[in-house]
Amino acid sequence: MSELSNSSTDGNRTAPTGSSDIDHANPVAGAGSSAFEELPDAPPRRKIRFSIAGKIAMGVVAFWALMVVFGPTIAPYHEADFLDEALFIVPGSDDPYPQTDFQPPSGVAYLGTDYLGRDTLSRILYGARTTIGISLISTFLAYLVGVTLGIMAAIGGVVLDSILSRVNDAILSMPTIMLGLVVISAIGSTIPILIMLTGLIYASSVFRIARAFGLDIMVSDFVEAARVRGEGIWWIIGREILPNMIMPMATDFGLRFVYVILFISGLSFLGLGVQPPQSDWGSMVRENLSGLPYGAIAPLVPALAIATLTIAINMIVDDVSAHSGGKLAARMI
């Protein structure tokens, strides 16, 4: 009866298939028992189907998640260890000791060594925990702050909403990386400061989205039904608003996480992020840039590590939020 309206809205719940005219294969037992039942207009619960690229991406993310947990355990050396020159020569030969820096991959260092002669693989594995750990905690912090304030703005009335929104606009108008630079050069760079700073900077964009979703859900009929029942505000937030925000915001979380990884790597690249000798992927690129002209792979490995993770997350996000537009447009003959 109303395919047109069906196909126009509703990004992630219903498939863009004009659901009302489809006789879905799961018959819902009707109320009566007459021959002409009302046809179920409900699509079966929608599962996200991943493309092949999406499945590979999930594998990549899973791999890095494992490395966050086990990386330091399985790393051949400690991240700060300088490899012994003796390792690089055949025992008993008379060759002079070689340089230890920027060594190509070998049985001693599977991914070669960095500018100080440390094992790149070990530093990548330790760095996974630092880079991903800091980014993940920062993103969670951004969500905690952003969603809390966003919901407050959505339900707190016009005055609170305008105040929060204007202040948030002001913060958003500051370039994130400059904001990070100014604060860190003022108060120094420790990991807790890095996390707090990143979390707060990215809370402003989370706030905007959470507020928008919150406002949408607040005017929905089911919230109105809860209000007219006399439910308190906490029940409405906890049972009506939050459960409906989780799915759409999950994709945003992925995107935000990528931005945070890039931001933290950027800071590290500028020398203001994670401080040596701790390894993190962004600073590893910067430290080893000097090896680039000589064909060292030390700066490329961490760069590649960042790229695999962020590209993989973005691919999953793309798969999850793939929408109907493409399918209709494909029929434009």
Partner: peptide, 22 residues
């Protein structure tokens, strides 16, 4: 027909058009 009867889908076939997913 009522919803689910396929009436719109059939009508659109006169234009050689099927909705996305059909």
């Amino acid at each position: 027909g009522e919803s689910g009867s396929g009436k719109t889908t059939i009508a659109l076939s006169a234009l050689g058009y099927a909705k996305p997913g059909l």
